[in-house]
Design a protein around this nucleic acid. Sequence first.
DNA 1: AAGGGTCTCAACCGCCCGTGA
DNA 2: TTCACGGGCGGTTGAGACCCT
Length: 239
Amino acid sequence: MGKKRAPCCDKSQVRRGPWSDEESERLRAFIEKNGHHNWRSLPKLAGLMRCGKSCRLRWINYLRPGLKRGNFTKEEEDTIIHLHQAHGNKWSKIASHFPGRTDNEIKNVWNTHLKKRLMKSNSLSSSSDATNQSLSSTSSSSSSISSVLKDVIRSSEKPNQEEEFEEILVEQIACGFEVNAPQSLECLFEDSHIPPPTSKPDLLEINGKSDNEFWSRLLVEPGFDDYNEWLNFLDNQTL
DNA sequence: AAGGGTCTCAACCGCCCGTGA
DNA sequence: TTCACGGGCGGTTGAGACCCT
């Protein structure tokens, strides 16, 4: 038997279960006045018979200002599906794309609605190509883009930036196939023979491009002499 | 109306990781 | 380098709401 971690609090001395209005109000008032520098000591200081972790959870998931309550929109649900394709069950990462939404909320939505919707959609897709098109393309695009980027970046002179490139691109692609060109691709330009761009667009939209060939060409096309030529190439690809 | 099944979601549990002594 | 601690995270649970027969 290994040494066991000491429990974070004495379970017999703390209240558990649903929070009362009074407890919530006490927690809110305390944090608004004093902040939350130490969750473990917070309940004692705030006069709450609760575990510090319970306070933290209550604050983050329910009391924190700026929380968006209510049902998820269709757009939000679609984005969750895209992001889940890219990140898996990294709920906090997915939640960071939704200001006002919590990881717990997104996890619940996924487990109760979206997983079932996907399963249903996948089972239908075996008999209907049309209904499956968007999902399967999203799924394959994430993985294929990911693998293409890995190959491309591995061959670059900055292999240590592989994960950073991939993460940024896959993330942005997952959010509706938009690529923030300067942020994501600048580093590739640093390594290439192409002169640095003098002006850059804020956002480059590359809708629905999911094939390996496109992404390979996008990233390694050797024939460009300057940034504008590269942009023209992209324009032609997107239209 | 009743009661059994299903769904939802707030809350808990325990592990992992970063940090500082 | 090691260890203890706190925070954060993902998985799971269970009470209450809702639906169906």
